[in-house]
């Protein structure tokens, strides 16, 4: 009897995740119905208008979607050379050595820094630098936000890819060396192709992180409701428009913000799903 109750308890605890996820989708969908009903789903995601004036309210998510995608993909691009280097450093060149432990710890510490502290650093240290370099007026904008985002996702991309890189069998590496390849050639022709999909998946998951990142982006992107036209222009991301305007909103505007939340949830869910799929395929081979 006691065991039965306990087993039930275990199952309910696991099932709670199902309820949370289900409830989350339900709440987001029902909260955004008003916005979608008013503007239509398609129009909502293709309009860049964000006009809260009471008599002519009009909301569209396009500029935020573009802001989010631009900052995240740029961040991904910036983070690749660094995280692949870190992954090769810890997973291949110095695998198992003290040096790799030190580098991994530095990376772990980077992952531990709260988003808001990254935002402060970006605002007070990086932004003036961007301003001096004349990369954007006042130093805000897509580029500044992307650089900080890139630093924030390096740990996610590198720790996972390091694992995949270190998993490449010794047999294969020796086989390549025995044919006279240099270490770089082994990395290029054997290690990276053999860990490729795993490394790819780590970048997908890192992208997922970047898409949902809120505070640091909010503090650096400039918070203007327009489609960013260049790297130096300001904009807004989906997460930051929610963070900035949720508290003061109601009615149609609130529903529009929730709709943006739903879209953000869907985008990250799809991205993470693809990442996990690639990893599970990789592990099977």
């Amino acid at each position: 009897m006691k065991d039965k109750i306990f087993r039930l308890l275990l199952m309910l605890s696991a099932a709670l995740v199902l309820f949370i996820c289900g409830g989350m989708v339900y709440s987001l969908v029902s909260g955004s119905l008003e916005a979608f009903g008013h503007f239509g789903f398609f129009k909502f995601i293709t309009t860049a208008e964000w006009n809260p004036r009471p008599d002519q309210e009009e909301y569209g998510a396009l500029s935020f979607i573009i802001g989010t995608l631009m900052t995240s993909f740029l961040a991904l691009l910036f983070c690749i050379p660094f995280s692949i280097s870190v992954a090769l450093f810890t997973g291949e060149y110095f695998r198992g050595s003290k040096l790799s432990v030190i580098v991994s710890s530095v990376i772990e510490l980077l992952a531990g820094i709260p988003s808001i502290v990254y935002g402060l650093w970006g605002f007070y240290a990086l932004r003036p630098l961007m301003e001096q370099l004349n990369l954007s007026t006042q130093g805000f904008g897509i580029l500044t936000a992307s650089i900080v985002l890139a630093i924030m996702i390096i740990p996610y991309a590198s720790s996972l890819s390091s694992e995949f890189i270190s998993m490449v069998p010794k047999d294969l590496k020796e086989g390549a060396y025995s044919l006279g390849a240099t270490r770089m050639e082994v990395i290029r022709h054997v290690i990276l192709p053999n860990s490729g999909s795993g490394v790819f998946a780590s970048y997908i998951l890192a992208l997922g992180r970047a898409l949902g990142e809120t505070m640091a982006v909010t503090m650096l992107i400039g918070n203007t409701e327009n489609i960013p036209r260049s790297l130096s222009s300001t904009g807004n991301s989906m997460a930051s428009i929610i963070a900035n305007q949720f508290g003061e909103s109601d009615g149609l505007k609130l529903s529009s913000l929730i709709a943006i939340g739903l879209l953000l949830f869907m985008i990250t869910a799809v991205i993470n799903f693809i990442g996990k799929l690639v990893i599970s395929k990789f592990n099977k081979v």
């Binding site: 390549a176 025995s178 022709h189």
Partner: peptide
């Protein structure tokens, strides 16, 4: 250069899977 003039075959077959 040495490795090219001295070919090696290993204990377990290790063709490159990719």
């Amino acid at each position: 250069e040495v490795r090219r003039i001295a070919g090696m075959v290993f204990q377990r077959p290790n063709p490159f899977p990719t």
